[in-house]
Structures are given as structure tokens and as C-alpha cells.
Design a protein around this nucleic acid. Structure first.
Length: 197
DNA sequence: TTGCCGATTACCT
DNA sequence: GGTAATCGGCAAC
């Protein structure tokens, strides 16, 4: 039950985004509450060089300050007036890259998740970045937290995932104004029913 | 201080 | 397929 080490997050952001597939997101908000989901879909955001990234051009606003932490921290932001998105910070200090966790497969704590986000079908519980934050109860309070210790952790893969089982494509929802909208920085586990849309 | 817009989602036709 | 909901972040004024 030991988290991915700090060095994992110092790999290139694109690499981290792919290697996070199959890892477990664990959130222990309070004693006796443990929520676990297997990561099945991610997107890489490449810092100051990436027009779709909040830290593009080296922007250092209050919202994005946790992106400038060393890899292995959480970056959680509020979007569309009603949702949160959970990201994993990558790279060294002052390298504001991150990986958006877009979907997980619920594994543990389903009762808590259903309470947080009532749905008809289990598959709709966490198949989107806003949905999984609601189900897990992740919000601004987790922004900047370390991912190496409770309450928020990411555990290594328990099974191997070959590159043939990983699909890639353009990122979702970033608009079509810049070239970056075509960069294939979205990754997901092929055929997994818990991937978004 | 103002006004636009967003790394989404649910619900509509 | 389209769009309303809803509000903080951000840049411009």
C-alpha cells in the first residue's frame, strides 16, 4: 500500500500520463472512509509551452500556483461555476506541467460515491473529470496536497498494461483556436467501459 | 470594477 | 445534434 515515489512524477509529462493508466487513485477524507478508483483516462498539459494549459506563457496566478510545486502534488481547480477537476502535478519545481485525471473505474467506497453523486448506472459514477471529483468529494480543499501520503495517494499498477492496450487522441473541451487542440495528449485504456463519453 | 469565458455536465430536440 | 446552468478567474478598462 505504498504510493508512487516522487521520481515517478519527474518523468516527461506525456510519459506520466500514460503510466498513470491502471494506477489507483485513493482518497481517505476521514477515518473509516476510503475511496479507490483505477485510473482509465488521462490528459497531459505541457506547462508554459502549451496554449491549452492554465500556466501557458508562465502565468503565475493564484489558481495555478500548485502547478509550480514539484511533481507528486494535486492541482484542483473550479470550472464552469459548478465542477472541479483533479490533476496530478508533474516535473520539477517551477515546471508547471500536469496530468488531468479524466476518468476512473470505481473499486472501493462505492457507497460513499453514490451518496456524493447519485446515478442510475455504476458506469456513470466517475466517467468524467467533474463526475469523479463529485463522487470522490474532491474540491479546492485538496488543491496542493501531496500525493505521497494519506489522505490523497496514487498507488502503482497491480497489473501490467502494454502500450497496445492504450489509445490516444486529441484532448477534450479545450476549444479549437490553437494548433494545440490537435495534439494527441489524451490517453485511455482501450475498450474500458469507464472511459468518458 | 466590468465583462467574457471556461480542461463540464445534464437534459433537450 | 444543441444549449442552459452558474460563478470564479482573468484580462482589460
Amino acid at each position: 500500500m505504498t504510493s508512487l515515489p516522487r521520481e515517478f512524477y519527474f518523468q516527461p509529462t506525456k510519459t506520466v500520463a500514460q503510466k498513470l493508466l491502471g494506477c489507483r487513485l485513493v482518497f481517505e477524507p476521514r477515518r473509516g472512509q476510503r475511496l479507490v478508483g483505477k485510473i482509465v483516462e488521462t490528459e497531459a498539459y505541457l506547462g508554459s509551452e502549451d496554449p491549452a494549459c492554465h500556466s501557458f506563457g508562465g502565468r503565475r496566478t493564484k489558481r495555478v500556483q500548485s502547478m509550480y510545486l514539484p511533481g507528486g502534488h494535486a492541482y484542483v481547480y473550479f470550472i464552469y461555476g459548478m465542477y472541479h477537476c483533479f490533476n496530478v502535478v508533474t516535473g520539477t519545481v517551477d515546471q508547471p506541467d500536469a496530468v488531468l485525471i479524466r476518468a476512473v473505474e470505481p473499486e472501493e467506497g462505492l457507497k460513499f460515491m453514490e451518496r456524493n453523486r447519485p446515478v442510475q448506472r455504476k458506469v456513470d459514477l466517475t466517467n468524467g473529470p467533474g463526475k469523479l471529483c463529485l463522487a470522490f468529494g474532491i474540491d479546492q480543499r485538496q488543491d496542493g496536497l501531496s500525493l505521497l501520503k494519506s489522505p490523497l495517494m496514487i498507488l502503482p499498477r497491480e497489473e501490467e498494461i502494454s502500450s497496445r492496450q492504450i489509445s490516444k487522441g486529441p484532448r477534450i473541451g479545450i476549444g479549437t483556436h490553437h494548433e494545440a487542440c490537435y495534439w494527441p495528449l489524451r490517453f485511455w485504456i482501450k475498450m474500458n467501459p469507464y472511459v468518458s463519453r
